[in-house]
Design a protein around this nucleic acid. Structure first.
Length: 350
DNA sequence: CAGACGTGGGC
DNA sequence: TGCCCAAGTCT
């Protein structure tokens, strides 16, 4: 028997029972594929169920407010996925009569759907013979064939793609693709792969040469940069507060946070900090109630150190580029985890 | 086309 | 602890 057939038998016996495995509905497959981009199943599963419950079909997603979509996505990270999902739902309504397109090239044109996701949806939902090469497949193929090119390099990806395209089972492309993905997730893991129970170990270059740790090769990522945030939290224990929408092309685009001062270095002099606070609230009459200890928040390429500063000001003061909201309404707005945690702790402690 | 884009978990 | 990673895509 050939490798792909053995793996398919293993897959049918060992695959996990996941909600998106019991359907071919392209909307559901689409949502699951986007949620699972760079995200573990344990983290994404609850979001998937919430998302399709809140937006049961393409039309309801297209008609939703972006803020509602982001709120549903809150805490999952990589928020462009939510914005693109919303955008693409409108694309489908406007350009495809609200029906999910059944051609690979049309699927690929939808915002937020790249080669991997287009291949996954095309093969799983429409039985089309396209490969779906994700991080699992790159790792599995790299070990199977001893590919030395880094899997995050173009050369590595091109080599692996040509191998997968030779291997692909055109009569059952959805299960073919998922069998490689599932093997990577359950057996051929990044660290300490369970080669002893691997159904295709005798085909595997890395296993046969005991070089599992040498594959896959990977180019190192850049080290994170530090950013220092100073958040002005105004009257949070009263009835109102001020929040601002992050509209720049930066982290947390279109989510909300508090009026903010950002620096490249820590502000060690309180007088400088107070001057900067004055520049934002444009008044001399404010009271600093509490300066919290800095909170460290680690992103992939940035380390954030955030200091929350609780301030009281006069009721009638307006702050530029912010909106004044009632505290009772604060749960309607999407916040990054850092801000959500602060609000949650603040509310809980009162 | 490198770099940007989140969060949580494992070791 | 700090680093690596997890069903990628966009610019």
């Amino acid at each position: 028997m050939i490798l792909a057939d053995i793996l398919l038998i293993w897959y049918k016996k060992n695959k996990r029972n996941l909600p998106w495995r019991n359907t071919k509905n392209p909307y559901h497959i689409w949502i699951s594929e986007v949620i699972l981009q760079q995200t573990r199943i344990t983290q994404g599963l609850g979001y998937y169920l919430d998302f399709i419950n809140t937006f049961p079909d393409i039309q309801s997603l297209a008609l939703a407010e972006e803020e509602h979509v982001l709120k549903t996505w809150q805490g999952l990270g990589y928020y462009s996925r939510a914005r693109n999902l919303h955008f693409a739902a409108k694309q489908i309504v406007n350009e495809h009569n609200g029906i999910f397109p059944k051609e690979y090239t049309k699927i690929l044109k939808l915002k937020g759907i790249g080669e991997y996701s287009a291949g996954a949806i095309a093969s799983i939902s429409f039985n089309l013979p396209f490969s779906a090469i994700d991080g699992n497949v790159l790792r599995v193929i790299s070990r199977l064939y001893g590919i030395e090119d880094p899997i995050n390099s173009n050369e590595g990806k091109i080599k692996i793609k040509s191998i997968v395209n030779e291997l692909i089972d055109k009569s059952n492309p959805g299960d073919f693709n998922q069998s490689f993905i599932e093997l990577g997730a359950l057996i051929c893991k990044p660290q300490n792969p369970d080669c002893d129970i691997c159904p295709i170990k005798e085909f595997c270059f890395a296993f046969l040469n005991q070089k599992q740790k040498d594959f896959p090769q990977k180019n190192k990522l850049k080290k994170p940069k530090n950013r220092y945030f100073y958040y002005i939290v105004i009257n949070l224990n009263n009835t109102n507060t001020f929040i601002s929408k992050r509209e720049k092309n930066d982290i947390w685009k279109n989510l909300y946070d508090f009026p903010q001062i950002e620096t490249k270095e820590e502000i060690k002099d309180d007088n400088i900090l107070i001057e900067k606070i004055k520049n934002i609230i444009i008044t001399d009459t404010f009271i600093i109630n509490k300066i919290h200890l800095p909170v460290k928040h680690q992103l992939t390429h940035q380390t954030l150190y955030s200091t929350f500063i609780e301030v009281s000001i006069d009721e009638n003061i307006i702050i530029n580029n912010t909106i004044k909201i009632q505290l009772s309404q604060i749960n309607k707005y999407p916040f990054p985890k850092l801000i959500e945690n602060f609000i949650f702790n603040k509310i809980i402690s009162h």
